[in-house]
Design a binder for these strands. Structure first.
Lengths: 290, 290
DNA sequence: CGCCCTATTGATCCTCCTCAAAGGGGGTGG
DNA sequence: CCACCCCCTTTGAGGAGGATCAATAGGGCG
């Protein structure tokens, strides 16, 4: 299978991204420069929110005035830690991937959701006083880090901003619900297939590949943690999906051979992603290189 | 085991409730009267929101002005249906129990959450345009039914109201996340025990019994749908918890014999309920009658 | 070149599911 | 008041999906 696309056209999306070389695409000194201008950092947030609900110039300015900076996190870094005291900053992904997870006392990890550019990493904690889960960088991660209290104030005082954030938070909650169904009610092949379908559409929406071909920077152990299976069984399940001609694999790159059949096997209905609740052209497939 | 409490002191809670005789405690004609005064109906909502964040008189009046009525739903009624077009009303539980559920194409049902008095049944859809799950009355259910667009407008224009609703919605999302962990990462005994712990605390907070003794108006099949197990295995698991001396059962009444050990078996940490993010005295055990 | 992490494959075990049937318990009609 | 019925709970026996244990192979990196 040929390599998936290199850089992806930026278009109206909030990030450009090099699929095959995560973690090496910009050197450290860029960080210093970015930190200089917080309005530039918040412009990513304005674009994201505008996609959820139209903002007028006053709204946009209020958001741009929120203290913020761009920041890098290395893979494995914990941005929010379960049980932690609130910090006064929140993040939105600009590039890279992050995930939410919780752990049982016996050390069993469960991944709760996966996040791509444009996702808020702790909108879920914006109005709560204690973190109930951990947020971790899956790949090298670039985020806009902004003042929690300031954004909270803007969200409460400016209806359009509030509405955009509401839509975002509720869409995310919807994904949690679907995951309860996925790990609670589906068998292994459907669980894994469902995860692939969700990733396909969300990565596509974030400009990280096309619906039919993308790269999952997760080990099979992490996939298992996301769908409630052991890594060994994930391996066998993926092999099964390949054998059935639904997908084709090359390392962590996935090519979907038969979207219809995969969707059926996964019992996947994209309704829960609430992708249409946005002004963004989420469903336009990218012509990823090759 | 003696019967659990009869009527429960109303106190600062939003509902009184007869534990053992759900569904018979008020006759039909009450409904007609209730519908006459929507400010009275919305007063339940004001009390709930005030518990999440202090409202001033102007806030309270804005909420009271939202068109609303009190309504009954029979057990099994669907208040929101997956995939449905949005209606212009939302509900908050006044008495009785409701649950959220999703279904796979093969008909496998998964219960996503359980709701007691004071819970909003479609705050999750307040800003979304299509229902992604179904809400069903578990018992005979009394709700405040209010205009969705009106409450939305108040939530966006009045910061205190918005903040109260945010806290409520985010707390609920936190419960979804914990359920992903529960069905995805725990073994059968822990799953069932965890559900019991959650119900114990939430019922207690809603005045439906004490932490140590309460009634679950769910069949073992429904419990199974909530924790991702078959009814047969739920039965065996409950028997096991009894045999271990953690709980005592009499029909659908549960008495917790050893809260500490149950909590340990369940891997239960109440942090995720965000009960402290409120001005309500959630943790005061009721002296339920008997 | 060697190390570590991950993917892969095999063999065995066990948790939980499936199928089946026998008890309650409450409500309804005779 | 009894008979019947329906739904739920309980219990048994057997099967299967997925876990666990273990060993090999592959790939990137120092």
């Amino acid at each position: 299978m040929e390599p998936l696309g290199n850089t992806v056209p930026n278009g109206n999306r909030t990030c450009a991204f090099r699929v095959d070389t995560m973690g090496v695409f910009i050197e450290e000194e860029a960080v210093q420069q970015d930190n200089g201008n917080h309005r530039e950092a918040m412009s990513h947030v304005v674009r994201k929110l505008s996609a959820r609900f139209p903002l007028n110039p006053v709204d946009a300015n209020a958001v741009l005035d929120v203290p913020a900076s761009l920041r890098w996190h290395e893979p494995g870094t914990h941005l929010v830690r379960e049980g932690e005291e609130p910090r006064d900053y929140c993040s939105m992904v600009v590039s890279g991937l992050a995930l939410r997870q919780k752990t049982t006392s016996s050390g069993q990890r469960q991944i709760i959701s996966i996040h791509v550019c444009g996702d808020f990493l702790d909108a879920q904690h914006l109005f709560l006083e204690r973190a109930d889960h951990t947020v971790e960088a899956l790949t090298r991660l670039r985020v806009v880090e902004f003042s929690r209290t300031s954004l909270r104030a803007v969200a409460l005082s400016r209806p359009n901003v509030g509405r955009a954030l509401w839509t975002e938070a509720l869409s995310e909650a919807s994904i949690f619900r679907e995951w309860v169904l996925n790990v609670g009610a589906r068998k292994a092949p459907a669980r894994v297939a469902h995860l692939l379908c969700e990733i396909a559409l969300r990565f596509e929406g974030a400009g990280l590949g096309s619906r039919d071909a993308f790269h999952i920077p997760m080990s099979q152990e992490q996939i298992g943690d996301a769908v409630g299976l052991t890594p060994v069984h994930v391996n066998r399940t993926l092999k099964g999906l390949s054998a059935d001609g639904l997908i084709e694999r090359d390392g962590r790159s996935i090519r979907i051979r038969n979207w219809e059949r995969l969707q059926t096997a996964a019992d996947f209905n994209p309704l829960y992603l609430h992708l249409q609740e946005t002004t963004r052209d989420q469903f336009t497939p990218l012509k990823a290189g090759a």
